[in-house]
Design a protein around this nucleic acid. Structure first.
Lengths: 245, 245
DNA sequence: TTAGTTAGTGCATTTTTTACACTAATTACT
DNA sequence: AGTAATTAGTGTAAAAAATGCACTAACTAA
């Protein structure tokens, strides 16, 4: 039995933020180029050490702001990663946080120990520093789940959006094609969208209607027991069956 | 910018295990009476410090075994709690793990720094040490979600069980009454249960059939895209409406 | 005027969910 | 032996939700 507790107080923790955005039909994640050892010069999630006198959640916010310039971002904890050798400087556990933001609403300004901060397309990403590949993957899983369970897709889109944009967002996150008519029927039947009475401009085809997400209405419905639910129902692919005569 | 990393390496982490069981129609949680400061003599979740050279998941297993005698328990991480002042000895982040076990399969043997280890009914529990009330609550939420999404209810029941027992289990976790016929229809339609061709013994009423959960079958179905899903559909309560004449 | 592009819409069928009440099997008691 | 008490077990009709599917509408550019 250890009675000398001092031995336990030799570890550190960090927070790592997985910030998702959506642009040009692709799911993006915000990465920094590290300006400090270990893994200097490599792309990594924006993360850093938690101060001793700082709450975990507050640290995530601060670190994100210091590294990327992002403030006022709602962060949600995902998972703690605690393999012994995941950090070269000693025993470091990291706690991951994730968020969904509208890319256009924010200006990314790398500072602190970040050489650069940039949006990267999630699909086909290169290897990241530390165990950040694993961390990102676990946040992608969380996102997939969240998007089916809560109306969070709207966090990634501009305030006014078309139904096709919304569908593309879902298809990118769920990684499966959805049926246009059924998707629209389902989403509209939830009564969470308000028709803006406006249409797209500057497109070389029939312009689409613009909608807004009505958060007040959503909150009210939730109080009444409403449960957002969107299933991952890919379009069926027709099989050609050979029949032996 | 901190360049002296040593300042960060002065923290500790612990793991706290939330082990659920089910007995006599009640959801139970395994608690220990602490034999060490801080909070000596108080009831708490079985948790302890993670060693510096020990993976987080491994620590959870070891600590559980040392404090309660439980081995070979599958533990799943839930959440990290990191308020600055949650531990009297310094900065300590804790990571919670949870598990579902069959109470009868295990013998609880308090050891290490635990004075006692006992099953407690979750409902109407007294205050626990540290922030363990919060930790327990978050695991209860996780359990509620898990039980609707995965066939984990069986982990809490003996290998052979009746449909009524299973229903009571769900009702205890979801905290709502379910319709008997619809519950049975739904569960049986999933083809996850095998009729044991046996009935209850020693009951003073019509004995119920016994069933087993068929894990192999479940795994096979999952491969084929099957998704366990059980909704929380409480029985509707009839309202007496007064009609003004 | 036409070609190209995306928006937008409906219906019939199938599947799933819901609400609901009586009979069957056993023991305990007299 | 009969009866009361207790829980097990069962089916159906109606409503709601999900599914599969293809054409017309609106706009721009050439």
């Amino acid at each position: 039995m250890a009675t000398n507790f001092d031995n336990y107080f030799k570890s550190a923790f960090t927070v790592d933020n997985v910030i998702f955005g959506f642009d040009e039909g692709d799911l993006k994640v915000l990465l920094i180029k590290r300006g400090e050892e270990p893994h200097i010069g490599e792309w990594a999630l924006p993360g850093y050490f938690v101060k001793t006198e700082e709450d975990l959640d507050a640290a995530a916010k601060r670190v994100l702001s210091e590294l990327t310039g992002l403030t006022n971002v709602y962060l949600e904890q995902v998972h703690a990663f605690g393999s012994v050798n995941r950090h070269a400087f000693g025993r470091v556990i990291t706690v991951s946080y994730f968020s969904l933001i509208k890319i256009d609403n924010y200006i990314i300004q790398p500072s602190s120990i970040a050489l650069q901060a940039q949006w990267h397309t999630v699909n086909g990403l290169q290897h990241l520093a530390f165990d950040h590949d694993t961390i990102l993957e676990s946040c992608l899983q969380r996102l997939k789940w969240l998007v089916k369970t809560r109306p969070v897709g709207f966090e990634l889109l501009p305030p006014k959006f078309t139904l096709t944009e919304l569908q593309h967002l879902y298809e990118a996150i769920l990684r499966c094609p959805l049926d246009k008519r059924n998707f629209r029927k389902k989403i509209l039947s939830m009564n969470l969208l308000v028709d803006c009475d406006e249409t797209q401009e500057g497109v070389a085809h029939r312009p689409a209607k613009l909608y807004k997400f009505d958060r007040k209405r959503y909150n009210k419905l939730v109080e009444q027991g409403f449960n957002f639910e969107l299933k991952e129902t890919p379009i069926k692919i027709k099989k050609t069956v050979e029949v032996s005569s």
